[in-house]
Deep mutational scan, measured.
Amino acid sequence: MVQRGSKVRILRPESYWFQDVGTVASVDQSGIKYPVIVRFEKVNYSGINTNNFAEDELVEVEA
């Protein structure tokens, strides 16, 4: 279970941040499909630095 402030590695192959490390900004408990919002240092092609992920697409590298 990841929690706010954890450092996580992204396992979603189609993601711009695949294999990159980001910080968990928040975790939604309402039961949505992609409840974990992760914030990154670098921006993607659209200038965005956050994205939603499912918990099984993340691996915690640092608490």
Score class of each variant (00 low, 15 high):
residue 48 I to D: 14
residue 52 N to K: 07
residue 9 R to F: 00
residue 5 G to T: 03
residue 31 G to F: 08
residue 40 F to V: 02
residue 48 I to T: 12
residue 52 N to L: 05
residue 11 L to V: 07
residue 54 A to M: 10
residue 1 M to Y: 10
residue 55 E to D: 07
residue 50 T to I: 12
residue 37 I to M: 14
residue 39 R to C: 14
residue 58 L to Y: 04
residue 34 Y to Q: 08
residue 27 V to H: 05
residue 7 K to E: 04
residue 46 S to F: 14
residue 25 A to N: 06
residue 20 D to N: 07
residue 20 D to E: 13
residue 47 G to W: 03
residue 36 V to G: 00
residue 12 R to E: 04
residue 22 G to H: 02
residue 19 Q to I: 08
residue 23 T to P: 02
residue 46 S to P: 06
residue 27 V to G: 02
residue 16 Y to N: 03
residue 24 V to I: 05
residue 34 Y to L: 08
residue 1 M to P: 12
residue 23 T to D: 03
residue 9 R to Q: 07
residue 25 A to V: 15
residue 21 V to W: 04
residue 21 V to C: 08
residue 17 W to S: 00
residue 22 G to M: 04
residue 61 V to G: 02
residue 34 Y to A: 06
residue 58 L to P: 01
residue 3 Q to C: 12
residue 35 P to M: 10
residue 36 V to D: 01
residue 30 S to C: 08
residue 43 V to R: 13
residue 47 G to N: 06
residue 27 V to F: 10
residue 57 E to F: 02
residue 33 K to Y: 06
residue 13 P to Y: 08
residue 28 D to K: 05
residue 33 K to E: 11
residue 31 G to T: 07
residue 45 Y to R: 14
residue 14 E to A: 07
residue 57 E to G: 03
residue 36 V to A: 01
residue 14 E to L: 07
residue 13 P to F: 10
residue 58 L to N: 03
residue 25 A to M: 15
residue 20 D to P: 00
residue 6 S to G: 05
residue 8 V to H: 03
residue 9 R to Y: 00
residue 3 Q to T: 12
residue 43 V to M: 13
residue 16 Y to D: 08
residue 6 S to W: 04
residue 54 A to C: 09
residue 50 T to K: 06
residue 60 E to P: 13
residue 25 A to L: 15
residue 38 V to W: 00
residue 16 Y to W: 07
residue 16 Y to R: 03
residue 54 A to W: 05
residue 48 I to A: 13
residue 25 A to T: 14
residue 35 P to K: 09
residue 12 R to P: 07
residue 55 E to P: 14
residue 17 W to C: 06
residue 23 T to E: 11
residue 1 M to A: 13
residue 31 G to L: 11
residue 46 S to R: 10
residue 22 G to L: 09
residue 1 M to F: 11
residue 50 T to G: 03
residue 37 I to Q: 13
residue 36 V to P: 01
residue 47 G to V: 01
residue 26 S to D: 14
residue 62 E to N: 12
residue 21 V to D: 00
residue 61 V to N: 03
residue 28 D to F: 04
residue 62 E to T: 12
residue 21 V to N: 02
residue 63 A to L: 11
residue 4 R to I: 15
residue 6 S to C: 14
residue 50 T to R: 04
residue 9 R to W: 00
residue 2 V to K: 04
residue 24 V to L: 02
residue 39 R to W: 13
residue 7 K to W: 02
residue 50 T to Q: 13
residue 35 P to R: 09
residue 42 K to R: 13
residue 8 V to E: 02
residue 17 W to T: 00
residue 63 A to M: 12
residue 59 V to A: 11
residue 19 Q to M: 15
residue 54 A to Y: 06
residue 13 P to L: 06
residue 52 N to E: 09
residue 11 L to C: 11
residue 52 N to G: 10
residue 39 R to E: 13
residue 14 E to P: 01
residue 41 E to D: 13
residue 15 S to R: 00
residue 49 N to P: 03
residue 32 I to V: 14
residue 18 F to W: 07
residue 3 Q to M: 09
residue 62 E to A: 11
residue 49 N to E: 05
residue 49 N to A: 08
residue 33 K to F: 07
residue 20 D to S: 09
residue 17 W to Q: 01
residue 2 V to Q: 04
residue 32 I to P: 06
residue 7 K to G: 03
residue 35 P to N: 12
residue 50 T to Y: 14
residue 46 S to T: 09
residue 20 D to C: 13
residue 28 D to P: 04
residue 7 K to L: 13
residue 14 E to F: 04
residue 14 E to Y: 09
residue 53 F to A: 00
residue 43 V to W: 09
residue 13 P to M: 09
residue 2 V to W: 10
residue 41 E to K: 06
residue 17 W to E: 03
residue 34 Y to R: 08
residue 12 R to T: 07
residue 59 V to N: 06
residue 10 I to M: 01
residue 59 V to Q: 14
residue 45 Y to D: 15
residue 32 I to A: 12
residue 59 V to S: 09
residue 30 S to L: 06
residue 19 Q to K: 07
residue 9 R to K: 10
residue 3 Q to Y: 00
residue 6 S to M: 14
residue 39 R to S: 10
residue 43 V to K: 14
residue 63 A to S: 12
residue 14 E to K: 05
residue 46 S to D: 15
residue 60 E to K: 11
residue 6 S to Y: 00
residue 55 E to S: 09
residue 46 S to Y: 14
residue 24 V to Q: 01
residue 61 V to M: 07
residue 29 Q to R: 14
residue 40 F to S: 01
residue 58 L to H: 01
residue 40 F to Y: 00
residue 18 F to Y: 14
residue 47 G to A: 02
residue 4 R to V: 15
residue 22 G to F: 06
residue 36 V to Q: 00
residue 36 V to N: 00
residue 39 R to N: 10
residue 26 S to V: 07
residue 6 S to I: 09
residue 63 A to F: 12
residue 49 N to T: 07
residue 45 Y to F: 13
residue 3 Q to E: 09
residue 55 E to C: 14
residue 60 E to A: 12
residue 46 S to V: 12
residue 29 Q to K: 13
residue 55 E to H: 15
residue 61 V to T: 05
residue 10 I to S: 01
residue 36 V to F: 12
residue 46 S to W: 14
residue 34 Y to N: 07
residue 4 R to Y: 03
residue 54 A to F: 04
residue 54 A to G: 09
residue 32 I to N: 11
residue 35 P to S: 09
residue 20 D to I: 10
residue 2 V to N: 03
residue 61 V to P: 04
residue 15 S to H: 05
residue 43 V to Q: 11
residue 23 T to M: 08
residue 15 S to F: 05
residue 56 D to V: 08
residue 41 E to N: 08
residue 6 S to F: 00
residue 22 G to T: 03
residue 9 R to M: 07
residue 30 S to Q: 08
residue 58 L to V: 12
residue 26 S to F: 14
residue 62 E to P: 11
residue 28 D to A: 09
residue 52 N to V: 06
residue 52 N to W: 10
residue 35 P to T: 08
residue 32 I to Y: 04
residue 51 N to Q: 15
residue 41 E to Y: 04
residue 34 Y to W: 10
residue 25 A to R: 05
residue 28 D to M: 11
residue 55 E to M: 15
residue 61 V to I: 12
residue 27 V to M: 06
residue 22 G to S: 02
residue 51 N to E: 15
residue 7 K to D: 04
residue 39 R to I: 14
residue 59 V to E: 15
residue 4 R to E: 13
residue 63 A to Y: 11
residue 18 F to E: 04
residue 19 Q to D: 11
residue 20 D to K: 07
residue 34 Y to P: 03
residue 63 A to C: 13
residue 57 E to Q: 02
residue 15 S to T: 03
residue 13 P to G: 04
residue 29 Q to C: 13
residue 62 E to Y: 10
residue 16 Y to C: 10
residue 48 I to G: 09
residue 1 M to S: 14
residue 27 V to Q: 02
residue 7 K to I: 11
residue 25 A to Q: 14
residue 18 F to P: 03
residue 57 E to R: 01
residue 62 E to C: 14
residue 4 R to A: 14
residue 13 P to C: 10
residue 20 D to G: 05
residue 27 V to S: 04
residue 16 Y to S: 05
residue 39 R to F: 12
residue 55 E to Q: 12
residue 40 F to N: 03
residue 44 N to D: 15
residue 61 V to Q: 04
residue 47 G to H: 03
residue 19 Q to A: 08
residue 23 T to G: 02
residue 26 S to A: 13
residue 9 R to N: 04
residue 53 F to K: 03
residue 49 N to H: 07
residue 63 A to K: 12
residue 17 W to V: 00
residue 14 E to G: 12
residue 35 P to W: 10
residue 5 G to R: 03
residue 21 V to Q: 02
residue 33 K to M: 11
residue 1 M to G: 14
residue 32 I to Q: 11
residue 56 D to W: 15
residue 19 Q to G: 14
residue 27 V to T: 07
residue 62 E to G: 11
residue 57 E to V: 01
residue 7 K to V: 10
residue 56 D to H: 14
residue 46 S to A: 15
residue 40 F to T: 03
residue 54 A to L: 04
residue 62 E to K: 11
residue 6 S to H: 06
residue 49 N to F: 08
residue 38 V to P: 02
residue 28 D to Q: 08
residue 21 V to E: 04
residue 4 R to Q: 13
residue 58 L to E: 00
residue 46 S to L: 15
residue 2 V to E: 01
residue 62 E to R: 11
residue 37 I to W: 15
residue 9 R to D: 02
residue 13 P to Q: 12
residue 41 E to C: 13
residue 55 E to Y: 15
residue 10 I to V: 13
residue 10 I to R: 03
residue 5 G to S: 02
residue 33 K to L: 11
residue 33 K to S: 09
residue 14 E to C: 12
residue 42 K to Q: 09
residue 31 G to C: 14
residue 56 D to P: 04
residue 28 D to L: 13
residue 54 A to T: 06
residue 12 R to V: 09
residue 22 G to I: 06
residue 21 V to G: 01
residue 22 G to K: 00
residue 28 D to V: 08
residue 41 E to T: 09
residue 29 Q to M: 13
residue 2 V to T: 05
residue 31 G to K: 09
residue 17 W to R: 00
residue 8 V to L: 00
residue 60 E to H: 09
residue 40 F to C: 06
residue 4 R to L: 13
residue 46 S to G: 10
residue 36 V to W: 05
residue 54 A to H: 07
residue 40 F to H: 01
residue 40 F to P: 01
residue 22 G to P: 02
residue 6 S to P: 03
residue 35 P to E: 08
residue 12 R to I: 07
residue 22 G to A: 01
residue 45 Y to C: 15
residue 38 V to F: 00
residue 11 L to Q: 06
residue 52 N to C: 14
residue 54 A to R: 12
residue 5 G to M: 00
residue 3 Q to S: 11
residue 63 A to H: 12
residue 18 F to N: 03
residue 22 G to E: 02
residue 11 L to G: 03
residue 36 V to R: 00
residue 48 I to L: 13
residue 57 E to C: 07
residue 36 V to C: 05
residue 26 S to M: 12
residue 1 M to D: 08
residue 20 D to H: 11
residue 24 V to Y: 00
residue 21 V to A: 02
residue 34 Y to T: 05
residue 46 S to C: 15
residue 37 I to D: 05
residue 27 V to W: 04
residue 61 V to A: 06
residue 18 F to D: 04
residue 11 L to A: 04
residue 45 Y to H: 15
residue 12 R to H: 04
residue 34 Y to F: 11
residue 21 V to R: 00
residue 52 N to S: 14
residue 42 K to S: 12
residue 2 V to G: 03
residue 27 V to K: 03
residue 45 Y to L: 15
residue 10 I to Q: 02
residue 56 D to E: 12
residue 35 P to C: 13
residue 37 I to P: 00
residue 63 A to Q: 13
residue 49 N to L: 05
